[in-house]
């Protein structure tokens, strides 16, 4: 199934070849995207070049003048900062949401029953409060009246997932897409209120993008035809 991005890329490549004998690099965009998209995006577009990192890390790189065409952040604040600092061309669009879930190792050694009192006295691992997944987890815990007493506050959500998947921790709080990636090693449980308070994913074209047309097409595809694929990877619809 050819995607819009691929079609545009192919068209531009053909035009370039026919027109002025440029190498068939085409208008394939350079995409700076949040790490949680690193599995799904390369499947959707095999011509684009990707750089995956934490959203704020990518913002830092854009600030330092990194040459990128598309920026996809895993939270609104980072995209807002990019827009306010004039790093974007046009308005960013919301392309997906991602809710937090509770994960336990497949054999659930601590017999966790859900986001409730059964988490007490388990080896619970969460993100640090400075990281979006950590602040979100604390918000949900407060709303549900559950006390979180983690043995570790990790720097990245993948570190939380790794510790649960390896059985080192009894439970962890990660995003639904992380849980979907490790579905053979972990069991996911819904957290009350999580679906109503998701992380939002935003995509925008970077100012002075070297490949503006490819960038526009990529963002349009994310907001349109690729939505089903994002859903299959565990992302929620934009709100």
């Amino acid at each position: 199934m050819a995607t819009i991005g691929q079609r545009v890329g192919a068209l531009v490549a053909v035009a370039a070849l026919a027109g002025c004998g440029q190498p068939a690099q085409g208008d394939a965009p350079v995409v700076f995207a949040a790490s949680s998209l690193s599995t799904v995006l390369p499947h959707l577009d095999d011509t684009a070049r990707f750089s995956f990192d934490g959203s704020t890390g990518l913002l830092d790189q854009l600030r330092s003048g990194a040459r990128a065409d598309v920026f996809v952040s895993a939270d609104h604040d980072t995209m807002l900062a990019a827009a306010e600092e004039g790093l974007l061309d046009g308005e960013p669009v919301m392309v997906a949401t991602n809710r937090l879930v509770l994960v336990v190792p497949a054999d659930n050694p601590a017999s966790v029953t859900g986001f409730d009192g059964s988490l007490a006295d388990t080896r619970l691992v969460v993100c640090a409060p400075e990281v979006p997944c950590g602040s979100g987890a604390r918000r949900l815990a407060e709303a549900a009246g559950v006390r979180l007493d983690p043995v570790s506050e990790e720097l990245k959500v993948t570190d939380v997932l790794g510790k649960v998947a390896s059985g080192e921790a009894d439970a962890g709080i990660v995003y639904a897409t992380d849980a979907a990636l490790a579905s053979d090693a972990v069991t996911a449980m819904e957290i009350p209120g999580a679906a109503a308070d998701p992380n939002t994913y935003w995509a925008g074209v970077v100012a002075q993008a070297p490949h503006p047309e490819g960038a526009e097409a990529f963002v349009a595809a994310l907001a349109g035809p690729w939505q089903a694929d994002l859903r299959a990877a565990g992302f929620g619809p934009p709100r």
């Binding site: 934490g54 704020t56 990281v131 043995v151 570790s152 506050e153 990790e154 570190d159 510790k163």
Partner: peptide
Amino acid sequence: TFAGSLQGVTRTLPLEIYLLRE
């Protein structure tokens, strides 16, 4: 990877620097 990251227990200087960087 191995010890985790909790203030005063396992979060050493380099881990704290990495966390605060953002």
